[in-house]
Write a protein that binds this DNA or RNA. Structure first.
Lengths: 121, 121, 121, 121
DNA sequence: GTGGTCTAGACCACT
DNA sequence: GTGGTCTAGACCACA
């Protein structure tokens, strides 16, 4: 097992990791992503777990499978992921963030400072 | 059950709700919080679930129990909760937020706009 | 409440405390021990708890009650307590102590050092 | 149920039993300890009781869980247990022992005799 | 198979 | 009344 948080299902973390890789450009449209067996060995997780993660990608149209050849990134992958994440970010992440900021008395200035401080990273 | 999300354990939601109540001042140091049975009836959850939620509070020193009398808010309750949440916010929430912003191409300005838009609420 | 451990019933701790006081000579045969009400106020515990503690003393013959006058230490109090404690010490405390010493790799010499170190206290 | 004392919660006795097993080397770092269901059947206690005992181990970092795979002994398990027990022994057990010895008029020599008498066992 | 959570209901000791 | 513990049995997600 390779650095998975325990508060979330591994297959979901793998699903999100794959999306991250696509957004970051590591995998482009048409690229083949690692086989189930390869990934399962590299990350030391059960093959069923990888299958389940890939299933999430397939059912959302982010990747598609070609029998006997593997899994390939779809043309619309980026758009699909971005649309989903943007909606989640604006509708769920931000409101929750603001709620926490108010409860904890953390100002927008503090957040901006952190942002600038980290941007150089 | 009374308005619990289903993506997170009830007892954890109750734990966080209790912390919110302490932060908001609804319960101050030395105050008695509702008995297990009372809360269990009010929220329509099993008593064991309440016990589990309260156990989280006890284990963190946020409340303590007096045999046969109930659960009472500790003196350092606010500090303990705030320290824990602030640490979590700065070390986990913010970095994750920034990571998402970069991946999604969302600027700090967009976040600020949302913040101002909501601040009047 | 005044410094009671939470892993043991208060009335039992009070019972043992009273025995300690008798062994140490604070209360001698025929002495009157504090009234239920007085002790309950001083230690900030429920009167029922004091009653229960005193009941333990009475049923073992360590104290006896004179109606309307209070609780008084029996003549054989010391002997009763000593016999009980000695048996407990030799049959239960020591074997358990030795078991822990073996498990933790603590030598008799270490114990003796502590004993000498503390004896001056 | 299999030989549990009744003056202490079963789950606590199981917790301490597990620690004993680790100290004695029966379970080493990385080893998988019995599954909840297995232990529950073997000891004839409810699964929830086992869960509770194991939760004590987890909360102290003595074991950790892998989703769907079981509970595994941590690398630092021995150190954690030893540190905890040694602290408890020196700070709580010994002082209490000495206090009893003084109250009961039991000398260090008597304790040593018992120790030697038992050492041959 | 595994752990994680929840319910229903019970009994006990303590206040 | 209160908290603490235990049982029996269930359902779920994960591997």
């Amino acid at each position: 097992m390779t650095d998975f948080r325990q508060d979330k299902a591994i297959y979901l973390q793998m699903y999100e990791g794959a999306c991250d890789d696509i957004l970051s450009g590591r995998y482009g449209p048409g690229d083949r992503i690692p086989s189930v067996r390869e990934l399962s060995e590299r990350l030391e997780v059960n093959t069923n777990t990888v299958v389940r993660a890939y299933d999430q990608l397939v059912r959302r149209g982010i990747v598609h499978t070609r029998r006997g050849m593997g899994y390939f990134v779809s043309e619309q992958a980026r758009e699909l992921i971005l649309a989903d994440r943007r909606r989640e970010f604006m509708d769920e992440r931000l409101p929750e963030l603001f709620r926490q900021m108010r409860l904890l008395g953390i100002s927008m200035e503090t957040v901006e400072e952190q942002w600038k401080g980290r941007s150089g990273k």
